[in-house]
């Protein structure tokens, strides 16, 4: 029995370690795969892309809502001398501008019902600035949602989306 004491201890240690590592890395791995899938489906880097209205045939992300207009922007703030400038055009109903980091955390959301919003996104570790948000990770996704439960409202939301912008710009000064 004593001969198995050491291997059993190793088994327990490996089980605990593998358990913790799996949980730690799973969100980042899934987010990484999701971002790769979004890129494959044409979601641009540093520009808003609006997929087609969500249907069973067009859905690309789990649990998408068929009642919402979505616009996505992938970002990569690997260059510390650059910042992302994000604008969400005006929309009379509910709309929001949500930021997700590489571990899937929704680290900021700005609600813009009836108004336009402009905000900067800074690389991790940046000093806080007025009118800007610091991203916890270099890479992530920005998602605009607009309430658009009918085909007519969806078409109107897409028209409003022409005022959306997501662009990488050099830090001034």
């Amino acid at each position: 029995m004593k001969r198995w004491a050491g291997p059993l201890a190793v088994l327990l240690l490996c089980a605990v370690g593998a358990h913790a590592l799996t949980l730690h890395f799973t969100p980042a791995v899934i987010m990484d795969r999701a971002m790769a899938a979004l890129a494959t489906r044409g979601v641009a880097l540093h520009a808003f892309t609006s997929p087609q209205r969500v249907t069973p045939q067009t859905q690309s992300v789990v649990r998408s809502s068929p009642d919402l207009y979505y616009a996505l922007c992938r970002y990569d703030l690997g260059d510390p001398a650059a910042r992302l400038t994000v604008r969400m055009g005006a929309w009379p109903d509910y709309q929001s501008l949500a930021f997700f980091d590489a571990r899937t955390d929704n680290f900021a959301t700005l609600r813009g019902t009836g108004r336009a919003i402009a905000v900067g996104l800074l690389p991790p570790g940046s000093a806080p600035q007025a009118g800007a948000i610091v991203s916890p990770s270099e890479r992530g996704v920005i998602l605009i949602r607009r309430l658009a439960p009918t085909a007519e409202r969806y078409a109107a939301a897409a028209e409003a989306g022409k005022a959306d912008a997501c662009s990488l710009e050099p830090v001034s000064g």
Partner: peptide, 15 residues
């Protein structure tokens, strides 16, 4: 055996 079984156990239980 301990390393392999433990790793599989940890991976499977987490998932």
């Amino acid at each position: 055996v301990g390393v392999v079984a433990g790793s599989l156990l940890g991976l499977g239980s987490a998932l």
